[in-house]
Nucleic acid binder design. Sequence first.
DNA 1: GCCGTTTTCGGCCCGACTGTTTTCAGTCG
Length: 576
Amino acid sequence: MARPNDEVEDLFQEYADLLSITGGDAFKVRSYEKAARAIGGHHEDVSTLDAKALRAIPGVGKSIADKVAEYFATGSVRAVEEARAKIPDGVRRLVAIPTLGPKKAAALYHDLGISSVDELVAAIHGERLRGLKGFGLRTEENILRGVELLRQSGGRVLLDAALAVADEIVAVLSAVPGCERCEHAGSLRRFRETIGDVDVLAAAHDSAPLMRAFRELPLVAEVIVAGEKKTSIRTAEGLQVDLRVVPPSAWGAALQYFTGSQAHNVRTRVLAVHAGLKLSEYGLFDAASGELIVSETEDEVYDRLGLPWIPPTLREDRGEIEAAQRGELPELVTETDLLGDLHTHTDLTDGVASLEDMVRAAAARGYAYYAITDHAPDMAMQRMSDEKILAQRERVRKLDGTVAGMRLLHGTELNIGPDGEVDWPESFLRGFDLCVASIHSHFTQDRATITRRLVRAAENPCVHVIGHPTTRLIGRRGPVDVDLAEVFRACARTGTALEINSAPDRLDLRDEDILLAKRFGVRFAINSDAHAVHHLGFVRYGAGTAQRGWLTKDDVINTWPLERLREFLGSAQAQQ
DNA sequence: GCCGTTTTCGGCCCGACTGTTTTCAGTCG
């Protein structure tokens, strides 16, 4: 189940969308968006809060607090239901298309009766948009490109959504009597950036109670197939989940088989054949006699193939078999290796939690150090000023070391402008412990310009980390067109780290880019880019992505002790 | 709809780009 806070966030975001499509007051729309974000990022469960506590959340006043209460009392909100009655859900989905906002969606619906993405595409191809005010040929092209982007991620969900579903199912099934083991497998276990369907594997002598419990889960919207060995369901959000139940003796072989990837499995089966064996989801067998050799653990299966156990995040047939044969598998960085987070926000800019709340939550994760990196003035909407950032620095210095001994770094997330310049002059930047620099606009510049822009940022002696280097948003915006090798070369030369932004809709750098960057000898930082307390946990996805890029602890600067990190930050400034 | 070096209503996130226009609306971060 979604967190109650997430349910309310989705509800108010939907209401804001509907209000904007119906031409409602823009400030009212913004109020609901702001409240949605604040509630989604709030640390307490809003379903347990009374009116007074609800109104203590920034952006929540009487009207919105009443609607939250109404939602938990009745299961719905009358005002939202009324808005839904006016605008078909398909019209709201149109605004998910990049470059298509509420005004254009409203025009398409009212003038042409278009109420779904499919109808819109058909209308464009039927040239029915020609002559519609505000819609030219370029607009049509942009819409079609946006739809294509949406469909590329089509049916696939982000890691966090898939993991939330998987975690819930595994927790419930593990408690069913007779269940000896239960884990998620598939691309989710390999931490792929998007997930087509969730695979859950369980071990039991009798599968019936597990299959029944699975079918009766509250999140099940539809049972697709129900058998003795396999059951598939679909959630209300459209995510397919497959449960396979195997005998406990076959656990290891099944887990290996259902974890994949397919390419990795092909390689392991070929290895088996060459050794006179046969590998299937039921075990490793002697090819001639059909006698079972091993099947109980993954370790045994790999061992009998002459390999050490291979971490799931490496199982893509990208050289892991060969590395394993040579005994050269990397010792992968893990989430628990992280000693701190180097890219986080507070409510001084676009975060929703206070400095103190963020610091407390970071300390609760056991971090040794933590950097606060709010936006700088060039992001005009954030209204940052020298005075505000210096006042924050005072507060950071006072808090430093007072919460569980955690050390604080005062930093900023600079904006890399169209020519590669950043917000403040060098004299001011030297006052920060750490500067992340990221691109936030001008995404469509040509390859040479973007490359030069990022190289210039890396060459800036005050920039320590390049944030979300390709700026892609999964399913919504492609990466900028850039010569990554050139950027990686510059980062290696200047001692500038590359971020692995852990936000599940970014995961930027992505795994393939990390593999390439590592070859240039670049260092990395696995950061949450948290805008709320619960975002700090995003580093789980960043660490998984780093593993898919074959990174070890030594490659990642925020696994280093503070002293070594400070040396790295200092030497970057000393250069050039 | 929220908020207030607040007290009851006026301001609220600003600037730039894109595409459609020919002076601006819509979208985005």
